[in-house]
Every structure is written in C-alpha cells, then in structure tokens.
Computed example of a mutant assay.
Amino acid sequence: MTQPIKIHVLHTGTVIVDEALPFHRPTDRPLAWTGLFRSKKHRVEVPVSVYLIEHPQGLILIDTGWNTVNRDHQLRNLSFQWPVNKANLPAGQAVNEQLAAMGIKTSDLDYVLMSHLHCDHADGLSLVRDAKHILVSEEEWQAANHDHMRYLPHEWKGVPVKAFHLAPSLDGAYHRSFDLFGDGSVKMIWEPGHSAGLCATRVQSYDTDKYVMLAADAGYAAKSWEENLTPGVVIDRAEAQKSLNYIAKVAQDPKCVECLANHDAAVRPHVITL
C-alpha cells in the first residue's frame, strides 16, 4: 500500500459579494453581480478556500487566498475591484500563517497550482513566492497579463510564476488537462467560462478508484451544480454552463469522495484521506 494522499481544506478568510456574483439567475439584471445600486440584503459572505495536498511526491498548494495586506490597506490593494469583492482575513488565517501553524515553511511547498488568477485566489501569491514551483495554465497566464479589468497583475509582481500546457486528454468537458506527475494522481482539468484558463483539480487515490474533485469556481458551491447556477462573472456563459454540467456529473459519481467548490459556506475546514 502506498503512502496515503491527504487534502487539507483550509479557509483563508471570506469574501463579501452580491449574491448574483456566485449564483447567476436568468432574472438578474445586467451587472447585478457588481452589487451596485443593489440593497445590502443581497450581500453574502462566503469562504475563500485553498487546499494543501500532502502527496507522496511532494507538498502541493492549490490557490493562495487573500493577502495579509488587506488587513490594513485593502482599498489600495484591491483597487477598483474593492466595491465588488471585499476581503475579510482574520489574524492567523492567511495561507502562510496557517502553514506555519502546521509546521510548514512556504519554501517547503513543492508546487503551488493556481486554479485561476482572480483576486481572491491569487492575492496571496507573494506570501508563497519561495515555493519551488508556481504554476498556472497558459490560457490563464495570457489572459491575466492582458485583461486588467478582471485581474490585478500586481498580485504576482516579482513572483516566479510559470505556465503549464493543457494537453489533449479524456478529462473534463473540454478534454484537455495537465498531469502534474504523469501518473494521473493530480490533474489540472480545463473548465473555462468563468475565466479563460480556469482549471479544476482532480486528486486520484493510488490504491483505489476513489478521487476528489476541487472544482474551483466552475461552481461557487454545491448549490451551483444542484440548482444549475453558473457564476455571475463569466467571459463566456455557454462555456461556463458546459463546465458546470461536467462538475454536476462528477458530483454524482460514486467514485468521487468529495466535489468541492472554493466558496461553499456549507464546507468547513477538514482533512480528506485518499
């Protein structure tokens, strides 16, 4: 029997948004997700999750959550995106602080894999800049460095990010993925729509046919695929719907131990062992 794979589900604070941002409904007016001219009754506060994977081939972090700078200089940090995404990061909940509490230095991380580079996922990149490898899909890297409305490039300034190639495969709605170790145990699966290079992460057990799907923002919560609610923020809603359909199918697979979205208020920090 091989060494088990452990997935630590961590919450790096919360994000305060209009409910139309995570959960788009056909009745929403245009730009409802911005929260502008909407009552406070539409605001929701949801967790910002990251995942630490203890893998036989190394330590892997999926996403980085909020940066500690938001505690004192949030408006300056989040800039024009602040009215839409407000950060709440209590003491001790930043990713580097949680790793330290576990006895892990950020330099111990073998890989940081980014699902995508929106602010609530990439803001903590500078906190883990000394990880051995920091990777994101080519599609996302290109979009993030050209689209300055959806992204905040200062979040990765000075951080040694490298892009990975999504190869043809049988994985996902679009049949492209990146196999981190070449053995199928950790795959980044392309699920565009919310962003150009969004990737879900599939973590497969070595000893059984069981796996965990980390859906990123293909759906913001289990509610997304259960009620067929695509994200409010999309670059292509048809693509986002196709990606959500795939995640909905995965969530029903008996082999899937857990299917987790990054912002599900019903999910508490816990550890999954495969």
Results as ranks from 00 to 15, higher is better:
residue 100 A to F: 05
residue 219 G to D: 10
residue 78 L to S: 06
residue 270 H to W: 08
residue 60 I to S: 10
residue 71 R to G: 03
residue 160 P to Y: 12
residue 39 S to T: 13
residue 44 V to A: 04
residue 17 V to F: 01
residue 106 T to Q: 08
residue 21 L to P: 00
residue 78 L to R: 12
residue 208 T to F: 02
residue 51 Y to L: 04
residue 51 Y to I: 05
residue 186 V to M: 07
residue 41 K to P: 01
residue 229 L to F: 06
residue 19 E to R: 07
residue 241 Q to A: 14
residue 73 H to S: 15
residue 173 A to C: 04
residue 174 Y to C: 06
residue 96 N to L: 11
residue 249 K to Q: 14
residue 235 I to L: 05
residue 257 V to S: 07
residue 258 E to A: 02
residue 259 C to Q: 11
residue 220 Y to A: 07
residue 205 S to T: 00
residue 253 D to R: 00
residue 80 F to K: 15
residue 117 L to T: 08
residue 66 W to P: 10
residue 248 A to S: 09
residue 45 E to D: 13
residue 53 I to T: 14
residue 19 E to N: 09
residue 217 D to G: 03
residue 185 S to A: 01
residue 272 I to N: 04
residue 59 L to G: 04
residue 135 L to S: 02
residue 162 K to S: 12
residue 123 D to Y: 04
residue 98 Q to E: 11
residue 71 R to Q: 07
residue 32 A to K: 00
residue 145 N to I: 13
residue 216 A to Q: 05
residue 155 E to S: 06
residue 92 G to R: 15
residue 215 A to V: 06
residue 263 H to K: 10
residue 85 N to D: 01
residue 73 H to N: 15
residue 65 G to Q: 09
residue 76 R to C: 10
residue 273 T to A: 09
residue 111 Y to N: 07
residue 127 L to M: 13
residue 262 N to V: 07
residue 169 S to L: 03
residue 77 N to T: 15
residue 179 D to F: 05
residue 247 I to T: 04
residue 248 A to Y: 03
residue 265 A to K: 08
